[in-house]
């Protein structure tokens, strides 16, 4: 592996894997303990509209995802929590609408859409340095927000009702958290693509849960697991010449399956 680091694209890929894992471990922890994986999937897929917008306007598609993702987070959040619509209906509507906007905008853009596949399924080997700067910036923003709202986010995650009684603006905090999920999606698009973001938002944190005593521990372990999955997936995809995003997800899924079975055996033994 060290000789691979002579290539700039490989160095960028490694950096992208590590930087994206920070966001994944931290935000994924909230996604898992609050059981809002489906919302996160909805935000990710709605953000595809942003990629279409980026193509249509001739901008960096990543820049298009940010406003689209944030709008999706706030839209889904408000619709499912304020309007009398069930949450999964709101998510489903946004999910499909975002994808449709993306498809239409890409269709309207003259010529062939290059790299479209890599936004859908990720290609960690083509992350340009400019995107790394963006990812680093978003990482810093996420860490800062989580550090500032540490006790508030814990309170709304564990017991939203109590948080409200204690005088917290739970809706605003909730929307803020959904926006952080949207930003994490932006970071992950380069690594595993829109379609598979949800796997890295949930699996590393879920694997970390059983070995963590606190939310902070879960974030740390989640980050480590995510880094492990990304780098080993990257390496395997290089060795066997496979699609990098899909390989990363497959590694994560296999580890998840394995640890789940291990935990299951552990509990069934102890109950005997």
């Amino acid at each position: 592996m060290p000789d691979l680091l002579h290539f700039e694209f490989m160095r960028n890929a490694l950096l992208a894997a590590i930087l994206s894992s920070v966001a994944c471990g931290i935000i994924g922890t909230y996604v898992v303990v609050r059981k809002i994986g489906f919302i996160s999937g909805g935000i990710a897929h709605t953000a595809f509209g942003g990629i279409g917008l980026g193509y249509y306007l001739g901008l960096n598609p990543l820049a298009g995802i940010i406003p689209f993702g944030l709008a999706a987070a706030i839209g889904i959040g408000l619709l499912s929590r304020k309007a009398k619509i069930s949450e999964d209906t709101a998510i489903g509507a946004f999910w499909a609408a975002g994808m449709s906007i993306g498809v239409i905008l890409i269709g309207l853009t003259p010529g062939y859409a290059p790299n479209l596949f890599s936004y859908l399924f990720g290609n960690i080997l083509t992350v340009p340095s400019s995107d790394l700067t963006l990812i680093l910036g978003l990482d810093c923003l996420i860490v800062l927000m989580v550090w500032l709202f540490d006790k508030e986010f814990l309170a709304i995650s564990f017991d939203e009702e109590y948080a409200r009684i204690s005088g917290l603006k739970t809706l605003a905090l909730d929307l803020c958290m959904l926006c952080l999920i949207a930003l994490t999606v932006v970071i992950m698009v380069r690594v595993v693509g829109i379609v598979m973001v949800i796997a890295l938002l949930t699996i590393p944190a879920a694997v970390a849960r059983s070995s963590s005593r606190s939310l902070h521990g879960m974030m740390l372990f989640g980050t480590l697991f995510s880094t492990l999955f990304s780098i080993s997936g990257l390496w395997l995809s290089w060795v066997f010449d496979l699609a990098s995003g899909a390989t990363i997800i497959l590694v994560a899924s296999l580890v998840f399956l394995f640890t789940t079975l291990l935990n299951y055996r552990g509990t069934s033994n102890s109950s005997c």
Binding site: L154, D159, G167, S214, M218
Partner: peptide
């Protein structure tokens, strides 16, 4: 939920 008894009780100070 990965939270200790003390962390849960601290929420009372919110």
């Amino acid at each position: 939920f990965p939270i200790s008894a003390l962390e849960l009780v601290l929420m009372g100070r919110l």
